[in-house]
């Protein structure tokens, strides 16, 4: 059952990305371009998403298990450290350059645009590099 709900949640997530405009790099860069002709649409994507998800997450935070009996796998870390901020800054630079973040990249993958294929290839490479560096650090 949880496999099915995971698949459905992924599907709905993809529909949301495609409908919202997040899957159009020009739209994303238009939102990030405060000094130019600013398109505020993506602020509403965030508002719509948080508006719907706020109560469910408030409920989930107080629970040990999900409705289907899975343990709640919520992050426990509390501290603000250099990795969090530095990593997020790097991500933001990449997001600003291409106007693509991980969700839309995957939601556009089957369309076969070379830009998406190259982006996902490079992103997976970056993630693999992180894993290799972490492995080295821990051994």
């Amino acid at each position: 059952m949880r496999k099915l709900t995971a698949f459905v949640a992924g599907l709905v997530f993809g529909f949301g990305l495609l409908l919202s405009g997040m899957a159009d790099p020009a739209k994303v860069v238009g939102f990030l371009d405060l000094a130019g002709s600013w398109d505020p649409s993506l602020a509403l994507v965030m508002a719509g998403a948080i508006g719907v998800a706020l109560l469910p997450f408030t409920w989930a935070r107080r629970r040990e298990r999900s409705l289907l009996g899975a343990p709640m796998a919520l992050p426990r870390k509390r501290e603000l450290d250099g990795r969090l901020i530095g990593g997020s800054l790097l991500f933001g630079v990449g997001w600003g350059i291409a106007g693509i973040c991980p969700g839309p990249a995957l939601a556009l993958l089957v369309t076969g645009y070379w830009q998406v294929l190259l982006f996902v290839f490079a992103m997976l490479g970056g993630m693999a590099l992180f894993s290799a560096l972490e492995h080295r650090r821990n051994h």
Binding site: L84, S88, L90, G94, W95, A122, G125, G126, M127, S131
Partner: peptide, 14 residues
Amino acid sequence: VAGLLVGIGTRYGS
């Protein structure tokens, strides 16, 4: 470059 930065950055930034 953007893909690489997004890959590394999102993993370090969790």
